[in-house]
Each structure stands twice: as C-alpha cells, then as structure tokens.
Design a protein around this nucleic acid. Sequence first.
DNA 1: AAGGACGAATTTGTATACACTTGCCTTGAA
DNA 2: TTCAAGGCAAGTGTATACAAATTCGTCCTT
Lengths: 213, 213
Amino acid sequence: MIDRIYSELRQQIVNRSIPPGAKLSETQLSKKWGVSRTPIREVLRRLESEGLVNSSPHRGFIVNSISIEDVDHIYTIKISLEGLAGRLATPIISKDPQKMKAIQNLIREMETHSKRMDVKAYSKKNLQFHISIWNWCGNPWLTKILNHLSSQLNRFIVSALHVPNRMERSVKEHRKIVEAFRMGDARAVEKALGAHFKRASEDLKNELIKKSE
Amino acid sequence: MIDRIYSELRQQIVNRSIPPGAKLSETQLSKKWGVSRTPIREVLRRLESEGLVNSSPHRGFIVNSISIEDVDHIYTIKISLEGLAGRLATPIISKDPQKMKAIQNLIREMETHSKRMDVKAYSKKNLQFHISIWNWCGNPWLTKILNHLSSQLNRFIVSALHVPNRMERSVKEHRKIVEAFRMGDARAVEKALGAHFKRASEDLKNELIKKSE
DNA sequence: AAGGACGAATTTGTATACACTTGCCTTGAA
DNA sequence: TTCAAGGCAAGTGTATACAAATTCGTCCTT
C-alpha cells in the first residue's frame, strides 16, 4: 500500500499534476488515501531525499521547484551520462539482434510520428528509445541516476519539441545513433548521444528564453 | 533531532562501524537514541532511498551490501563525472588565486604524507582535494551525485593505497591535475582526472583479486 | 484605518497502543 | 533422534492520541 501511494504521488509530482510549490498536507493526503499520517510521512521523507519535495520543520512539505539553472545543471550531467550509457550499451545491443531490432522499430515509429507532426506520440517513443539504452547499459547504478535526472527534467519540460523542425532534426540525430549501434562503434554512439542531448538542451534553453521575453 | 540521528546513523553505515548486512531494528534504535519508533522509521526510509539500507516487508531494515560488481559500476560512473566536475571547475579554480593556492597546499601536504608513508593522513588530504573540486564545479547536482557515489565506495574500500608505490604514483597524478588547473586547460584537467580514477579503480580491483586468492 | 499583539485553530512532531506477520522454540509423534 | 506442527515472543505496520509549533483571524491600540 505504502509503495502504491509513493509511486502514485511521485508520478503526480513528476507529471506536474501536483505543481511545483504546492503544499503537501499530511492530514489532507491521509484523508485522500484513507490511511493514517504515519505511512504518509514515510512516503514524503522518501520523496524528500529524492529531491522532489522539500520540508521545513513544523511547516510541512512542499513540492520542490526547479529553476532554469537547475535544468542547465542537470543537462550538463545528462549529456555526459547518456553518452556513457550508450558507450556501455553498444556491445550489448549490437550483438543482440532482438535488441537491435527493437531499437530500429522504435526509430521507425518515431519517424512516422514525426511526419504526422504528432508531438505527444513522438515524445513517448523518444523516451522509450532512451530508456532502452539505460536499461541495456548493464550498469544499474547508471540506469538509476539517469532515471532520477529524467524525472527532474520532466517536471520542467512542457514541450520543447514545438521548436520548428525539431522532430525532423531529432529523427536524424537518432538515426545517427542507431547507425553507430549497428556498426558496434561505442565511441561513435557516445559522441552521437552527447551531441543529441547537447542540441536538445540548447533547444530547450532557446525555448525558455523566447517564452520569458 | 531527527536530522542528527539521520546523519550519525548514515555516517556509521558509511564508515562501516555498522557493517553491511547488519540488521537495523527499529525498537533497538529507538531505545538507543531515546526516541520513539516513528522518527526512526523516517530516518530508515531516507537511508533506504539513498541506497544505503534495504527493507523487506515485516522483516525490517538491513544495511545494504555492496558487491565487487557494484564497485566496478560505481567507478565507471565516477570516472566520467569526476572528469566532468574537473572540467567545469577549471575556469572557477584557475581564475581564483585563493582556490588555486588551497589546491596547491593540499597537494604539498599529500606529498609530505606520502614521503612519510602515512596512508591515513594521505587519504584524508586526498579526499579533501577531490571534494574541493566537487564543491567548486558550480553544479550542485553534480556535487551531490559525487558525494553519493563516494559514500557508497567508502563502505567498500578499506584501504587500496597499500599497493606498493600507490601513494607516490598518486601524487604524480595529482600534480598533473593541478598543473592543468594552473594552465586553465579544462580538457587536460578532465583527462588527468579520468586517468587518475581509472588507475585508482584498477588498483582497487587488483587488490581485491589478490585478497580473494 | 493601519499595524501589531494576543489567542484559537490547524498542522506538524512524537509517543503510544494495538493488530498482524515472522521466526524461533518447544513439544510430540514417527 | 529427527522432523513437523503449533504456539509464543519479538518486531514491524498502522492508527490514534497528545504535545509543540505555526498560521491565521480578531481585536485593540495608535
């Protein structure tokens, strides 16, 4: 039960249905879920050490805000670690025809969604693509960190892909990554992934600047 | 109070005075600290989501073990992120004479301890050296992750520096890093740090193989 | 009318109580 | 003597109760 509350609350924070800055009242949450405050507090403490909520003594918990600077900092780490994950995943993926096929299917679907300008469907497949790499990198610690960073970013990104031609360019970048996988060239995968996320971060930054103007 | 218990318990786990595999009884801990079980449980949940303890339903919490594979996985990430932190820290450190001086002082002390074969004092300064880089990289998320990884490793490393000439070689590697800082060459810092931790990880692995024979 | 101070209500922090699960120990039978 | 079954002790999971702190509203003063 407690795990259910945890994951559901977590998701609500990550997908912004509980917005940053919102107060998380223990009493309210315990009523909503029909449990006492004790398990609710444990859930909130877990979310706190994940960096998703903040607490101050006698004032309770609020959903952590994430600033533009934070996004920048997180992307800096992400660029490095996504590349690393790709490099580690290369021998695993390229030697396994089933995995290779799965990746190629994903990119084909992405292409279709891109042509139809279906941003939402595209984003979903895009995330699946990268999660596959995390899961196949063979380093569970790395997988966990990337998941973590991604959760934080999801709370910020409403949609960066509305930039004109973003999807089209993105497909090209992904094709480069897949090609490097196919060749089994780990360094090329690392480089292509790094470049891809660097561009993604720049696009996001530009979008944010435009919005703030 | 709860924070005090958290940090003290955490340190005891990290420095192995509570060994991996040890059972953490809520009742026992609450007696020891003179508080009720409620705050103890919150502390344990926090430690759980940090990956320092594991819990199973109705069986309580035990200190998480860390395997040789985990050490390998963590070092892989560390090599990448320590390099990144160094690269980011370069302009900050090299432009600040005070920081530059602090770093140079540390390496001088490390050299002294190395000559006297004082492993413990050396390790301490060595850690300080690297923590300085984390703190001056300007990316608090990165600092936090590196701290995190370091805590996990500390639980494993008894002493890798007993390898013959390890300290001497280590000093040389650090001097290379400092020299790159002095030149303001971020890429060189990144490379030197990466090489340093790669060698550290290999030394540790060799030590572990030797022990297991 | 505005600002501050006091007090009530709400909310958090912690203790305690009780239900339920687990694991151990005892006892009895093969 | 060994193994199994049942019960008991210990410990976790959760609810509830109470203490302490904060917040908000009201009232008084300037």
